[in-house]
Each structure stands twice: as C-alpha cells, then as structure tokens.
Amino acid sequence: MTDKSKKNIDTKPIKALAKLLDELSLTEISYSDKEFSVSVSKSVNVNALPQSNISSSSKGPVVEDESNNDYQNDPRAIKSPMVGTVYLQPEPGANKFINVGDDVKSGQTLLIIEAMKTMNPIESSLQGKVTKILVENEQAVEFGQPLVLVE
C-alpha cells in the first residue's frame, strides 16, 4: 500500500487533460515542461466484429460498390429512392438515357429502376453536367445508393 502522505500529486492538470481528451475525442494527450510531464490516455475498444461481406447475389453484380461509399454525402450525387434493378436505357437495344458529359435539366430522366415488376423513371434533382455514372446496367441497388454525379 502506498503512503499517500508523502506525495502531493497536483490533479488539476491531469483533470484538465482528461477533460480535453473527451471534448476533442482523442485517445491520448500529453503535456511536458521543464518541471513536469504527464500523459493521459483512454483505452480504445477495438471493434472485433467482422465487417459484413457483401457477396454477389446470384442475380447480378454486387449491391454495394466501394466507390458508392465515397459519394454517400456528396451533394452532386443523385441517390436511389428505392430498392431495385437499374436500367440505363428505356428498353433493350435503345440508346442510354444519359452519357457522361451530357447536360441535364432538373426533372430529366437519368435511368430506370425496376422494382416489383414496375419501371420507375429516376429524375435528376439537379441541373448540370453528368460527370460520372456510378452504376452499371442491370445492377441491383439499395435505398440511398449514389447513382449519378451531376455538377
């Protein structure tokens, strides 16, 4: 058992550092000067759960591309309002609705999503130029999935 009467630890700087740690969501913070140095750290719970493996469905290509995750919060992204299958042209053999480089108006149909046997035209909410088409023909998409970039 330590003899607490011999040492007087100044808890103020430690408390201040611990507070900063929390406020700034840090895991470690240290301070040192000529007379004194202290380091405060928080143990991190490494989340050992496996990331879900989005494997290809028997129907077609992967539901989630890595590239889509990059555009989740991108203001240029037109996102899918439903779960279904993407068609880039109105019918097989016809020309695609849009190509990269096209100018599109707000309300213009960009592609079709088939859901439960109904064809749903997906319209652009933005006006501008199509810079990227993030999905392939007949690709399965989920709600909120980025489809096209318009800027």
Partner: peptide
C-alpha cells in the same frame, strides 16, 4: 439508413438498405 452500423447488418451475408 440509421441502422447501417447495426449488428444484424454486420453479421449477415448480404445487406440491403431499404429506406
């Protein structure tokens, strides 16, 4: 969308965001 990081999504073989 709120459940993107939920455990049931992480342990399933596939997941689909439905709304």
């Amino acid at each position: 969308e709120a459940d993107r990081d939920s455990m049931h999504v992480r342990i399933a073989d596939e997941s689909v965001c439905i709304g």
